[in-house]
Design a protein around this nucleic acid. Structure first.
Lengths: 208, 208, 208, 208
DNA sequence: CGATAAGCGAGACGGTACGTCACGTCTTGGC
DNA sequence: GCCAAGACGTGACGTACCGTCTCGCTTATCG
């Protein structure tokens, strides 16, 4: 309104599809070669662009990788099945599929890298905390409102448990070179949710 | 007689303390500078040895880092307090301290790197699976024997939950630049264990 | 057009003055430190360029040094004074100055290295043989035409004598840590030429 | 007499043949690989001794190489044929054979290296100057005494010419990958001596 | 004859240069 | 002004060699 979007115009506009091609190439390279062996030259070559085109958009390797990986972020279409257990099951299932997928796994790795360097965690940390944490909080809030959940339960701890369980599950699968099909993930989601939800004492089995 | 060891003794023996000095230096460098910024020259310099001494023992950067980090492995002195809840509490506390410590955190990062590259996971995967998994299995077995735990509960899932929760806790702490004191870790361990152990419905265990 | 040159123009062109700067730096380093103590890093640093810029142009140390030294080739602007003795005097004087100068001396050393390894003498051998040999041949031919020289005299032997004498002269000077001024070189050139030209019996030329 | 050769005795005496084996190995390595590619480890291995045995006898690479090469020194059994021309012919022949032989060629190379570094030329320079120079001086002196040579001729210049000619001859042979048989060397010696001795004008051919 | 001393093969040690490769920047000509 | 190409200065990589240093052993002389 009014400003006309600043100094737009003058000179050739940026090639429209470039960002996506580069992000895809970066993700593919990262998945295939890991952090060592991930080179900017290779990304540019695979994307079919020049290095200047890459550096014009991202300041350095970290920035590109972070965006490549977080852009592939988890679909967080508000989970809401009507019951607490249903919500958790769907959430855990989504998380498991995410962690086992190449893009999701890469996202976790980058999170660890970012967390290890203590720098430029500005946006990243907030994204993880607010977007993901908020989701669990909403689920918990609805469950408390429905009388399904004790208000004393901390959503933060619940988040740690659920996210951590799915993460470690993917880690173990990779270390053992297993690939999980959808049915296996479903079964595992069920086990995780039940373990969290229920008393696990011997006589506590009466939840059938 | 006794040692055997084949062609021992020819030539100058390797300096006894060198391995430890180098591993310690590697860990310190990795902790201070992260994976990028971790250089073999710096490790050698800090350890006060020549690069050849390093490369004589480890084939490359990855190998050194992996060993540096896994050698600092979690103390797994058999946890056994007499009750299931006590065992879990102590285990979670140990894991939290480990994940929050520089060495333990680095170990997790390397685990992710190893899992991402699909290579040379020979010893590593087994260590993680058997040593750590075994610990939890033993705790569960004893609990079942004492009648504290339903035999249907999968120790694998329990492991994922516990390890994952501590890992994610450390990750969040780092992303938010928080450092946790021992009391905080204790409280958090309590919350995690209770969340796992108990039915989390609104009125506690009387869900029959 | 006109230049043609095939696939020219793509990418940043090589910095124009770099070759010369590097060659000059190489020659200076070689002169100051000798073959041992001649390092590529030092050459690059002195030339104010990166190592990659050096290795982009020369495959290795030998190649750089060879070119550095042969590029400083003897000025072979056709000697032609009108008399055989005059030609020889000027030639010997030039050769003496060349052999006593740092660049010329280095050129001789490299010639010896090249000759010792039996490799990549492709261009080098021809340069020495044809360019230098040709010069003496032309001088001899003109002398024969003028009736100053017996046609039976082999220009090859004369070349060996003259080049060898100047080379050994420089060698001895260096071994004795002497530096020769221009006047001394002139006197020595005179002695060499006279010794070659004349019968050295006790009463001069009347040996019939 | 008296002293009994100082503190000889006590402890194991040095292995008698070691020096020779090492020198031979050094010469062979130098001849095959040149100065670059000449390594102490290879010399020790080829000689079948440990590095300590080498370094016990020579302080460093230069010292070993210098001695290896000068020990193979030219046979300087006083040339004395009775005539000046005969003496020169034999001397030039000896020098040519020396320069064309691997050991002699290596000796020249080392002379150049030593002369280029301006260091520790103490013994070397004197050896070259006095031993070799003296030989020519004696030949000249006898020739003057016999009335065959003008006293004004400088033996130094004559030395430069003769040594230089043989050196350059060997250099050219190597650059062209030629190997010279004995007959060729004989013929060449004749040409060199005649060129030096005689007036080379067109009517000066009456020396038959 | 046993203690003492030096030589010896082997090979690890702290350095340092090698030649390669990637980073992030810069400089072309073309679009 | 964006783009592909690619050269640039910098600096780490993993290798190889230098000259030194320990080992365990052998070989001599001296007390």
């Amino acid at each position: 309104m009014g400003t006309g979007e600043g100094a737009r115009g003058r000179g050739r506009p940026r090639t429209p599809g470039a960002e996506d091609k580069i992000l895809a190439a970066a993700l593919a390279e990262y998945g295939e070669r890991g952090w060592a062996g991930f080179t900017m030259d290779a990304v540019a070559r695979r994307a079919g662009v020049g290095k200047s085109t890459v550096y014009l958009r991202w300041h350095d390797k970290d920035a590109l990788l972070t965006e490549a990986v977080t852009s592939q972020g988890l679909e967080l279409t508000g989970v809401d099945t009507g019951t607490f257990r249903g919500d958790l099951l769907q959430l855990v299932h989504n998380l498991l599929r995410h962690a086992h997928s190449p893009g999701g796994w890469a996202a976790w790795r980058v999170a660890f890298d970012v967390a290890s360097v203590h720098q430029r965690l500005g946006g990243f940390s907030e994204a993880v905390n607010q977007v993901h944490g908020l989701q669990v909080e909403q689920i918990c809030q609805r469950a408390v409102d429905r009388g399904e959940l004790a208000a004393t339960v901390s959503p933060g701890i619940l988040t740690s448990l659920i996210y951590g369980a799915t993460l470690v599950d993917a880690l173990m699968a990779r270390l053992n070179d297993r690939t999980a099909d959808d049915a296996t993930l479903d079964r595992r989601a069920l086990e995780i949710v039940d373990l969290v939800l229920l008393d696990i004492g011997p006589e506590g089995a009466d939840h059938s």
